[in-house]
Amino acid sequence: METTATEELEVALLLEAIYQLTSYDFREYNRPSITRRVHNRLALEHLPNISRLTEKVIYDEKIRKELLNDFSINVTEMFRDPSFFRALREDILPRFKKLDDIRIWHAGCATGEEVFSVAILLTELGLIDKATLYATDMNEDVLERAQAARFPIQKMQNYTKNYMLAGGSQAFSEYYYTDSHFAYIKPELLESISFAQHNLVTDQSFNEFHLIICRNVLIYFSPPLQNKVYKLFHDSLSRGGFLCLGAKESLRFSDIMPKFEETITNEKIYQKIYD
């Protein structure tokens, strides 16, 4: 699809409007992919051009929400970036063995793949009974899908490979059962997980956590918004608690950096300084 100069301008204006209205900053985000999503929405709403969509986005909250849904790219997989999960397994989670209960917050859990991955790690480390995993996302549709704990069976091949690379100590097939279309996460794993709707931009902290995982969520946020969310994370962490970010994110240039130290730089794992 060829984008004309006019269309580029229209997309820019649309993203600007969204930024002004919601503080979600998609302006720097990969433009062709955004444009494609916008076109999908245009087709669904039967609108002739992007400017009309912008108008709708400004006045119609429902459309705005739907477009944001289109934009929030819930690309996730189980044991995504296996080295990160290996680091969690080998370096971070064992530190919680002394604790009586472990609270973990998955902010922006999307369809839950990573939550289940952490639950598997905790199971294999024998910590699952002490742990509570809070999985939150602002998008309720996505949360619903996460709670179903069901994945197309085709994805399991890749997940199996990731699991092995992340240092899984059992057979991955022990954590799911299948029918011909789907693989289902076994209910035992879900027992420790509680799903809830939470908006990082507008909602407050709701507990004190030993570990906060928020990967590939903040890359869509503008720097000021990122700082705000980082502050929320800092407030929600216990002393010496850990914050894990996505591979393309970093605390390094944020205001909050002085209050953290890098535990494992390559995996973007930070520890809140005891103070």
Binding site: I153, Q154, S180
Partner: peptide, 10 residues
């Protein structure tokens, strides 16, 4: 389950 996973055409 495992057979289903691996016999599914990727």
């Amino acid at each position: 389950s495992v057979l289903r996973v691996w016999l599914t055409t990727e």
